[in-house]
């Protein structure tokens, strides 16, 4: 999560310096939730559909930093080759599909990846996971996908990062139930609530949800409560978030909480964390520098075909 924060701070600087075409969307404040989900999954076995604020989860799942910097900076060497940008990237062949912008859409997609694993006879012990925000829970795709996964009893974990605002829309204009976790019972899936700013709690609760799914207990839904510590994107100052929310409990920075927990719990010394910070900063710098030196997409060399099939009977 620390690596993701350092990377995203760099992306923010690059955006402000005009070095990035298109938007920059940060997971600031969501790193504990996302990182714990990514860390609980096994690349090469599990599948993970990250969403807009999942840099920490992507990194923990095994996505190299260079995939991120190449996509943001438009390198033709990147996984999307300049055809898509920023967080709309993935490696579907490595179990990490590339998100589309339409919220909730990855929920049935992950269900389908798990469904296929069952048909192939390799589902045993596998988990598929995706992260959505509070806003995505209002979509038809979220409902259809979670219900379908429950009907099929698929080992799926859906983490709802309730950061209290869908772009600018607060929870009270998004849903009317008291707590989103109440919906779990209606879907017939496992339900958990967790303090999304507390690394140890996230590791424990999300770890448990992943474990239950892996044991064949069907879909699990985790609602993590937190506050988005940035705008929707770097173009947005988030001025609609009231000061009382920023000053409130969930306004605390999960990275600072995590460092305190690691030091106080004796898991890592402050010196060790400082060393990590230095190491990750260098890694980020290298990934940015490499992507910046690479070629941009060339419209004259681009294969302008949306199909893999060629039709010899058609002249144009």
């Amino acid at each position: 999560m620390l690596k993701a924060r350092i990377l995203e701070n760099k992306l923010s600087s690059l955006y402000k310096a005009g070095k990035i075409v298109g938007g920059v969307y940060l997971g600031k404040g969501q790193e504990a939730v996302s990182g714990c989900l990514g860390a609980a999954l096994i690349q090469g076995k599990d599948c993970f559909a990250p969403l807009i604020r999942d840099q920490a989860g992507r990194t923990a799942f095994g996505e190299p930093l260079i995939d991120c910097t190449r996509t943001y900076l438009g390198s033709v060497e990147g996984p999307m080759k300049g055809r898509d940008g920023n967080i709309h990237r993935g490696r579907p062949d490595k179990g990490m599909p590339a998100m589309i912008s339409h919220l909730g859409a990855q929920v049935p997609l992950i269900a389908g990846m798990l469904f296929a694993k069952r048909l192939k006879g390799v589902l045993e012990g596998c988990v598929g996971a995706t992260c959505v925000g509070d806003g995505a829970t209002s979509t038809g795709a979220f409902h259809e996908g979670l219900n379908m996964a429950a009907v099929e009893k698929l080992p799926m974990v859906v983490v709802i990062a309730n950061n209290q605002f869908a772009y600018s829309t607060p929870n009270n204009r998004q849903f009317a139930c008291g707590d989103l976790v109440e919906r779990a019972r209606g879907y017939g899936v496992g339900g958990y609530s967790v303090d999304g700013t507390d690394l140890m709690a996230c590791a424990s609760v999300i770890g448990e949800a992943v474990k239950q799914a892996r044991l064949g207990k069907g879909p699990q839904m985790v609602v993590a409560n937190l506050l988005r510590l940035s705008g929707h994107g770097e173009h947005d100052d988030g001025s609609y978030v009231p000061d009382s929310a920023r000053a409130g409990y969930y306004g605390r920075d999960c990275i600072e909480v995590a460092i305190e927990q690691l030091v106080e719990g004796g898991y890592a010394s402050q010196a060790k964390i400082d060393a990590w910070r230095e190491e990750f900063s260098e890694e980020v710098q290298r990934a940015v520098a490499q992507a910046q030196q690479e070629a941009l997409p060339d419209p004259y060399l681009e294969k302008w075909s949306a199909l893999s099939t060629t039709f010899p009977y058609i002249s144009s």
Binding site: A105, G112, G145, N147
Partner: peptide, 26 residues
């Protein structure tokens, strides 16, 4: 058996599931 499945009345998720399955080689 186990190759032909009834789906819920969820057209969005039906195609979402199928795309996910296709990613996995089906």
């Amino acid at each position: 058996p186990n190759r032909v499945f009834d789906s819920p009345i969820s057209e969005d998720a039906m195609i979402g599931l199928a795309v996910g399955a296709a990613i996995e080689g089906m």
